[in-house]
Amino acid sequence: MLFKQDLLWDIWASVFIIGQAFVYGALLGVGLGFAAGLSHRVELLFSGTINTIRHIPSVAWIPLVVVWLGLGAPAKIVVIAKSIFIPVFLNTLQAIRGVDHNFIELAQALKLSKRQLIRRVILPAILPVIMVTLRYSAGLAWALVVIAEGISGLEGMGFLIFRAQNLLMTDQLLVCMVLIGVIGYALDRLLYMAQRRLLRWQRGFGGSYA
């Protein structure tokens, strides 16, 4: 294990972790964010717990979760999903609270059901915030994957880069740095493209100003 050389496998291991953690964290964050955003009672139920958990950094969770779930992927997925869940949940909740009341009134006048209100008004209204949060937290989560693999793990980009450090293999270390950067960039581009597609209707300040 310590001398295995299979770069593609290690890349896959890391991408596998961030991919799963991202999907779970984002779905749970948006889902619970919606539940809390639409019901004050649900908000009260969750906010205390979540506000407590969120002040313990994800890195501090790693040792405990590894004890529970072992050195493999599941432990890392849990910790990283949590690191994505928190900002997505909080931003979804706040964005729902910030939806223009005029639109809610319009929905009332049009007799939209609660489901229609969510699908046609609230979800599109908060999508810009959700997309930014997803991109931002994906970046943080990718960094966390590298750290988590470095701290505890026997495969993945994080494992490789820290092993290279310990073995003074500067060439491998540099390759890992570049690859981590490239994968992080690709991840963000993917989300950026999704954002562009989903927010076609938006026409804010485009950036050119003469």
């Binding site: 639109f103 319009l106 049009l110 007799k111 939209l112 059901s113 229609q116 046609r120 008004v121 599109p124 209204a125 999508l127 209707w201 938006q202």
Partner: peptide
């Protein structure tokens, strides 16, 4: 008007139900 809906959809939403 809902900024994320086209003109057509903005009018169609009144007929959703």
């Amino acid at each position: 008007l809902l900024p994320w809906l086209t003109l057509w959809d903005n009018i169609a939403i009144a007929l959703d139900n």
